[in-house]
Write a protein that binds this DNA or RNA. Structure first.
Lengths: 342, 342
DNA sequence: TTGAAAGCGCTAACAG
DNA sequence: CTGTTAGCGCTTTCAA
């Protein structure tokens, strides 16, 4: 069965394709009866206009693109889930791609999506990205850019982030209120904003409760996975540190550290209370179950798409992009690994 | 900066847009020097032709669609990851959507994607789907359909599945070889092919090792999540069953059951050995870590896209779709929950 | 209120 | 080998 087109509908009803098009696009200059006749017929045969053809005139594809640094990561998967939920509700199609945290791939993907004329690009910048010309190009071409998670402050576009500093503060405060005084902190590198913010939140909490800051207690794990969590814990141990709490950079790092502590016959949370970061699925099932910071990633995804819709409105009024930073708060999920008095 | 078009390139070089187009599409009837001149210039200014416009003539969008029943599921996420890897390598764009296991949504998505003229649709059928007209329509419109995981045998298209029966056989055999003789099996409903195959694999193994089959030991959990795993274990317990092994329908169900066994002070794997299904991330981190069947989902994703490329070749030779079922084998990942002699 | 005609950017047929 | 011409299916003037 060949696909129907405007002309088929028009000749079946004995009118012109222009009129059919007008009905489909809610033009006001169409007779009520004609409108109903067209609408009925269109519904009956299940006709929808060819999107690529309409694009040629409207310059809108009703497709948005999402570029993630990685896919094997619950956080990004959930963001996709959130975006997908709202975009489907709004009859938008979502194209997904991964930069694999590689600058060249990111550039290539952006250019590819621009070429496919997506209406917007949602992007979390890759670790390697140092130049932003490709992102500026998105806006030059009149497309909407929304940055999230790993953002670049100097770019003039809406951004969505988690309030990592506050999240980290709350997590640290929770440890302190549970009696911890010697709190170890695993952070990722010195550059990522996320790592900086979490470190600052950690310090904020120490300050507030007059706990002296000890530089040695901050250990850098470039990649916060189990293996590095294990090594970092080992390092702290070998340096002979006295600790009773740990704020890890990720759930994985926390679990790696717990592994090490268990090997040393230390009891969690009695000897050392542990808080992770991310609320990955596994945190609920580890033993002990892990207290962690939930980054409300699904909500972030939903937010991203809603911001896009708002930007589209701005654009239709010929206003410039909003350049607002939307900050979502994270929640602490308290589980066994940090509740001494259970 | 407005986007360049063929005509811009052409007039900059003092030739016609046809010639430029021919170079870009690798036509042979172009002078070597002209070709090089165009190629150089195109590379310099970073021009790529507008895909929607070319579609109008070529009927190819270089976009494929993936419809998943769910997103919050490692198995499907990994399939997406696999597809994405290969599709990006081939300069294809991937659109993703979720049917939420709902028939109506699935139909709507298919029609939407057809409307957007994707070159192919990769689909795992929703639980609720009972009628396949919308899938037949995909092929009627000359688009490629590849089914995976939850497939429909009667449809004339390539299909990719895991050899669940064999996987289940291997898992059960592993339990038997570890000394289990009273093996409980949690299956999902009676209808899903997956559930049937796993049940059959379980029986195959019992047969091979002359272990009598006991109907009571097969418990149905419509949804194989933790809660139902817990309840199913409880049910077995309340019926006074003697068991020393469990083959669960999913890792979650296995973990739910383990939870229950632990409450009853039973030791895993000493009293009861447990094998899950899926190799979800959490299986590695649960206590005890869970022996499970890895469904090589990433590989499945890669396979799906490769099959699409093959189908495209068939199509270009005017041959009909292949209708072949590609079966991937699953691997057993042995961990603590099933190794008595550690 | 309607429809004829132009044109979005590209590719394919064909004439030079 | 090159370029002119004619659409692909749609939307949007503009004249009737």
């Amino acid at each position: 069965m060949k696909k129907l087109k405007l002309l088929d509908i028009a000749s079946a009803l004995g009118i012109s394709k222009t009129t059919v098009s007008k009905v489909l696009n809610n033009y006001s200059d169409v007779n009520q009866f004609t409108r109903i006749k067209v609408l009925d017929y269109v519904r009956k045969v299940g006709f929808e206009p060819n999107r690529q053809a309409s694009f040629l005139r409207t310059k809108k594809t009703k497709t948005v693109a999402l570029i993630l640094p990685r896919l094997e990561n619950d956080f990004f998967t959930k963001i996709q889930e959130g975006i997908l939920k709202v975009s489907q509700e709004n009859d938008y199609s979502l194209s997904v791609a991964t930069s694999y945290d590689c600058f060249e791939t990111e550039k290539k993907l952006v250019s590819q999506f621009l070429n496919r004329n997506v209406d917007a690009i949602f992007l979390s910048i890759s670790h390697q990205t140092i130049n932003f010309d490709h992102l500026i190009e998105i806006q030059k071409q009149g497309k909407i850019l929304v940055l999230f998670d790993k953002i670049e402050k100097t770019l003039d576009c809406p951004k969505v982030i988690i309030d990592d500093r506050k999240a980290s503060f709350i997590a640290t405060e929770h440890l302190i209120k549970n009696g911890c005084k010697q709190i170890l902190h695993f952070r990722s590198g010195y550059k990522p904003q996320i790592s900086i913010d979490r470190y600052l939140g950690y310090r904020d909490a120490l300050n507030k409760y007059n706990i002296p800051f000890d530089k040695e207690k901050v250990i850098v794990c470039e990649i916060t996975d189990e293996k590095n969590g294990f090594s970092a814990a080992k390092k702290a141990f070998e340096l002979g540190m006295k600790i009773d709490g740990l704020l890890a950079g990720s759930d994985h790092a926390a679990i790696g550290a717990i592994q090490f502590f268990k090997n040393k016959k230390l009891s969690i949370p009695k000897d050392i209370s542990v808080v992770g970061f991310g609320n990955w699925k596994l945190s609920k099932f580890s033993t002990p179950s892990l207290t962690t910071v939930d980054q409300s990633a699904i909500q972030m995804g939903e937010e991203i798409f809603k911001i896009f819709l708002e930007e589209k409105l701005l654009e239709s009024r010929d206003e410039s992009p909003s350049n607002k930073t939307h900050t979502l708060s994270a929640n602490l999920i308290v589980r066994e690994s940090s509740t001494k008095n259970l």
